Computed example of a mutant assay.
Amino acid sequence: MNRNFHRPWHMIRRVAGVSAMCLLGLTTLSTSLQAEDILSLHASTTELSFQLTTARSDDSHLSGKLAPVAVQQFALQQVKALGSLQNTDQGWNSAQLDFSPLGPGTHSWLVNAHIDGSRVGYLIITANLKGKLQLSEYGQGEHNPYDLSLLQQSLQRHHVDLKELSRGGNIQLRYAFPLLAYWQVEQSGADIIYIDATNGDTLPNGVVEAMERKSQDEQTPTLSSTLPVTVQLQSRSAERSNVPSFSADPIYVQPDFDPADNLLWITSKAVPVTSLQPLIQQWTNQQAIVFSADDNILYGGPLPVSGYQVWRNDDRSEQIEYVAIGGHSSVRRFVPIDTLIEDGHFYIFKP
């Protein structure tokens, strides 16, 4: 395996001058954002605001325009699991869900959960090559990918002129399998800029474009041909026999750290991991864990493993293990441990 240490492009980030209230309600974006819309609502040099169109998850606001009904129903199933812990619900059960498609042809959707403008968390739902919907990642609390403040900072670093961008440019939300969330910024007469949506770093054009070509070659099946998009949503309080009986265990969060603070892990042997248990054992031994992907550029560099959550059937016969990565200089994302095992390895931070 290639264990190339990829230090994040920008380890120290400027704090954007965007107040929390300015960003509330701005977390759901249409697939393509016209630059003139950005410019017209550009209140100051440190604030970005967008006129957004959203699809609501409650019964009176169903829409298949931004997400098919099957996707909306699948999202409600995941929210039901996340809200199954009465003492640590964090508002999932009463949250409103907004849907945004993540680029043409990707068959992925960003779902933001909020209550009266306060963020509860997010989901990213993806249709795999067989057309089956899956929860690719999720997060708790106010931080989520596609944060406008990160986009604003990156545009400033690239000296992107919003007036110039408004003359034929646009910004798209994109998502590449398995876990690359990014912005695509198109400018008239200039190269496309790709920006990591989890940390604001600039992505190499060649790498992203190669991934996009590969995705197109795989020809992911259309959702309508493989999923029951005619299924109707019902009220959350109503009985739904088609909702799987599973719930989420409490979240276990580990102390945050920066993998760049101690590089001894690079020369150490990877921890053999085929499930969550070896990681739990290391945490029991007071060891911090680093995840390093074979191609770290797609993850924004080696990341701290900062927690986990297990989803179980009610009879506990099956479980899905999610591991939290990031949280220091990027968004903390809960992703399937099987995805991480396939993409890279785990190391003890201070061997």
Rank of each mutant, 00 (worst) to 15 (best):
D314C: 13
R333N: 11
G301K: 02
D314I: 15
A293N: 03
R333D: 07
I320L: 13
D294H: 13
L298S: 05
D315Y: 11
S317N: 15
L340S: 04
D295F: 11
I337D: 00
V310D: 08
Y308L: 12
L340R: 02
E342F: 13
E321L: 10
I337P: 00
S306Y: 06
S292D: 10
V323K: 00
I297F: 10
S329K: 05
P336T: 06
Y308S: 07
F291Y: 08
Y308H: 14
F291M: 09
E321D: 13
V310A: 06
V331N: 02
L340F: 08
D314N: 11
Q319H: 11
I325Q: 02
E321F: 03
H328W: 14
H328Q: 11
W311Y: 15
G344V: 04
Q319Y: 14
D294N: 14
Y322C: 02
G326S: 06
H328K: 15
G327T: 07
E318T: 12
A293K: 04
Q319T: 14
D295E: 15
V331M: 08
R312T: 12
D314H: 13
T339G: 02
G327P: 00
D315K: 12
I341W: 11
L298I: 12
F291V: 03
Q309W: 04
L303A: 09
D294E: 14
L303M: 12
D338N: 14
R333Q: 09
G326A: 10
Y322H: 09
H345M: 15
V331S: 00
P302D: 10
Y322E: 02
D338P: 02
A324N: 09
V310I: 14
F334Q: 02
P304L: 08
R332C: 05
V323S: 00
G301E: 05
D294R: 09
I297E: 12
D343L: 12
L340N: 03
Y308Q: 07
L303W: 07
V331L: 07
S317T: 10
R312A: 09
S317R: 15
